[in-house]
């Protein structure tokens, strides 16, 4: 916050736009929906800030999702994301226009510049918020975020400075659609950025080889047990894992039968895993196995036996023939991904 400014000098909610590939990142649309709620409570407007080039149809998309204004900053020398460019441009814009709230996606990119921006602006930043609201009495942003590995929730406020900055991960908020879209005001400015400071620069982008990952590090695991019936059927699990971006694991029986390598075994005598998502396919849920995976964040169990023990620890239960279900599931994922 600038030394001579007062809290009341600041108004408006900003969302900083980020792209993945050439598309607007989904988190931006989610943040616009939340920004729209917050702006209503503060009786102010939402501005989407785009650094770099932007196309006209993007303005429309941002408008439908909640932006009242678009501020496009074009810089001839900067093509892609750059830490110092973002930090410097946003600092100057904030000093000039004084927004009250800035929301940023908690993406690798957002995590990279948001802390520096808050330091340069000398204002508070709250990371990975899972809820945002306005405190009626003070007008402060109430920033809810998990701490201590999610064991505790905290409400954090930036009380003595503005803007109030928060980052939010993808998928926390739902995007909203305006039914009667008002006209979006678009403002474009050009900024000359000369890199006088030492910069960190991207030298290469590499496609990642997904095969090198270990079951212990995988965020999503597709695990098969005796119910998969054969080594060939494990191919289905491979396909599902590829589709959903996970790794295949197995129970001790599946590993002993040679359907999958021993180092992919989960359970008492294998690895203890804690992925975000564990899909148990044709696994009965013997205690030797569940000891190794019961702390997974979300467990989906597919088994044709409604009495299978696995269902007692699963979050989502599916009573079905796994061999019939998985192909249908793969198709459904493909459909939903494209929709």
């Amino acid at each position: 916050m600038q030394p001579n400014a007062k809290l009341e000098d600041y108004s408006g909610v900003w969302v900083v736009v980020e792209r993945s590939e050439s598309e607007i990142d989904p988190v931006v649309l989610e943040l616009l929906g939340k920004a729209w709620d917050l702006a209503k409570k503060r009786n102010t407007s939402v501005t989407a800030v785009i650094l770099g080039k932007h196309a006209d149809q993007e303005s429309k998309k941002l408008g439908i999702h909640g932006a009242d204004n678009i501020l496009g900053v074009h810089c001839p020398d900067v093509q892609d994301y750059e830490q110092e460019f973002y930090t410097r441009v946003l600092t100057e814009l904030v000093h000039e226009r004084k927004p009250e709230i800035i929301l940023i996606g908690a993406t690798p990119q957002g995590r990279d510049y948001a802390p520096r921006l808050s330091k340069r602006l000398n204002t508070g930043l709250t990371a990975d918020c899972t809820g945002l609201d306005i405190e009626e009495t003070t007008g402060n942003l109430l920033q809810e975020c998990p701490t201590y590995g999610g064991n505790i929730m905290a409400i954090i406020q930036t009380v003595s400075s503005r803007p109030q900055m928060a980052t939010v991960a993808r998928g926390v908020f739902k995007p909203k659609i305006r039914t009667k879209a008002s006209k979006v005001k678009v403002e474009k400015i050009t900024y000359c950025f000369d890199a006088t400071r030492e910069r960190a620069s991207t030298v290469d982008i590499i496609e990642q080889d997904g095969e090198t990952r270990d079951v212990r590090d995988a965020e999503i695991l597709v695990a098969g047990g005796r119910g998969m019936e054969s080594s060939e059927n494990f191919g289905l699990l491979e396909e599902l894992a590829r589709e959903i971006g996970g790794k295949v694991a197995g129970t001790r029986s599946a590993c002993d039968l040679g359907w999958i390598e021993k180092n992919c075994q989960v359970g008492q005598t294998g690895h203890v895993v804690k992925p975000r998502l564990y899909i148990a396919c044709g696994i009965s849920g013997a205690i030797q196995h569940t000891i190794g995976m019961q702390d997974s964040e979300h467990i989906i169990a597919i088994n044709k036996d409604p009495e299978a023990r696995i269902f007692s620890i699963a979050d989502t239960c599916i009573v079905a023939d796994v061999l019939e279900f998985i192909p249908a599931f793969i198709n459904a994922i493909k459909r939903f991904r494209n929709s």
Partner: peptide, 22 residues
Amino acid sequence: DGETGHVGPQVAEELGIPSITG
């Protein structure tokens, strides 16, 4: 505990040096 990931980049900012996160 806090899980913010802020202190690193903010130290770099205070020192005026580049930071590479993650």
